[in-house]
Simulated scan of single mutants.
Amino acid sequence: MSSLHGDSIVIDGLIIAKWDRSIFEDMKKGGLAAASCTVSVWEGFQETVNNIADMKKLVRDNAELVTLVRSTADIRQAKKDGKTGIILSFQNAHAIEDHLGNIEAFADMGVRIVQLCYNTQNLVGTGCYERDGGLSGYGREVIEEMNRCGVIVDLSHVGAHTSEEAILASKKPVCYSHCLPSGLKEHPRNKSDAELKFIADHDGFIGVTMFSPFLKRGNEATVHDYVEAFDYVINLVGDDCIGIGSDFTQGYDKGFFDWITHDKGRYRSLTKFGPVLNPEGIRTIGEFPNLTQAMEHAGWKASRIEKVLGQNWMRFYDEVWNV
């Protein structure tokens, strides 16, 4: 691990792994100071509460490796202690159900980031795989309440029209925690140049993912293709609002992808990814130092690397979480 990587606050803005001790050990190996960890996608309120309880027990049982994050001060402390800070996050507002009060309840439990929709339509708005009707009236109230409670609005899997309305409706900056540019590969989950500029122009944040089906070279990609994606976005919007959102699915098999890509209508599937292989050089969370090395290889200055590794996320978290 290079001294630059070791000294930096490294944050992954989105991991949806099969949570267990081995993942936490790999986070330590990779030098992660914090990671946004998905604890809800399709689960309703009660199942999500169960997931949060399970994750908190796992964190307690592995307290020498990880710690729960509620603030950026917690991330700094985790870095100082050689641990990884676990940020609880959702990839769908489904768990809020039709009760606005659940947002504050989840915030009190430690949830800090909620994606409005996951690929498809819910009570809040529309995902990226469906005809996009925009933000619902209830969705506007959800955003207002998330702003009040200091919960980040994430639009990664949200449709373009719903995203635009959410960006304009939110009084706090919002994010795409994990996305790629459609300028490198056309895909419903990738964001156009116009979408990327629009969120950046409204003080929003862009986490760049390495999920191979969305990368230009798919399963042939290497860590250098991942850096190319960062470069593409930085050339569009600068390097102050960019960070990592790997979308690591470590530990999961085909059954997980079948579940994650389902839709309304029993057994109805939205999309098929086929075999998913992370880019060579960063196949596991423990290989994160190779990303820093690839950034250096691409001629990035140390100041840019530090910003993209975690400084930018820290500033963004501070701005939204502090209420």
Rank of each mutant, 00 (worst) to 15 (best):
F205W: 01
F230K: 01
P213H: 12
G137L: 08
I86K: 01
E25S: 15
E43M: 09
D7F: 06
M1N: 14
F24G: 07
W259S: 07
H262P: 00
F316G: 02
A78M: 04
H178E: 04
F230Y: 13
D239M: 10
N92H: 07
T261S: 13
D193N: 13
C149S: 11
K197G: 10
S192R: 07
R315L: 10
V41P: 02
R283T: 15
K79E: 07
R148L: 07
K83L: 11
E25Y: 04
T48V: 02
E144H: 14
V39Q: 01
F214H: 05
Q46M: 13
E186C: 14
H161R: 15
A294C: 07
A294D: 06
S303F: 10
Y138S: 10
G44Q: 11
R60Q: 11
K301V: 09
V323T: 13
W313V: 01
F256C: 05
H5M: 08
L236A: 06
I23C: 04
D81R: 14
F205D: 02
P279K: 11
M295Q: 02
S36W: 09
C117P: 01
D74M: 05
C128T: 06
D154Y: 03
T38G: 08
L123R: 08
S163C: 13
T48G: 11
R140Y: 07
E165S: 03
D61R: 15
C179R: 01
F288A: 15
L155C: 03
W321D: 00
H262Y: 09
G101W: 09
T261R: 04
I15F: 03
S246L: 09
I199C: 03
K28S: 13
I143G: 00
A194P: 04
V308C: 07
N278L: 07
G101L: 08
A107I: 05
V223P: 00
D247G: 08
H202Q: 14
L123C: 06
P181N: 04
F45A: 03
S8G: 12
S89M: 13
F214C: 12
S2R: 06
K185C: 02
V308R: 00
G281P: 14
C179L: 00
G31K: 09
V66F: 01
P289W: 06
S3A: 14
R21K: 15
R304S: 06
L88R: 02
I15Y: 03
H5W: 05
K18C: 12
C179V: 09
Q293G: 12
A107R: 13
D253F: 04
S182V: 04
L291H: 05
Y118F: 15
L196D: 00
N102M: 12
E145V: 11
I244D: 00
T261A: 13
Q250L: 14
V174D: 05
I86L: 04
E97R: 05
F24E: 00
R70E: 12
T249Y: 13
Q121L: 07
E195A: 15
R60K: 15
E47Y: 10
V49D: 05
R112I: 08
S303Q: 14
M27Y: 03
A63F: 11
L58V: 02
L277W: 12
V153F: 04
G82T: 07
V308M: 10
K197V: 06
A169Y: 06
T38P: 03
I285A: 01
V158M: 04
R21L: 12
Y267I: 06
V323M: 13
L123G: 02
G6M: 11
G286K: 12
E164R: 02
R148I: 08
K83I: 06
I103A: 05
E186W: 02
D132N: 02
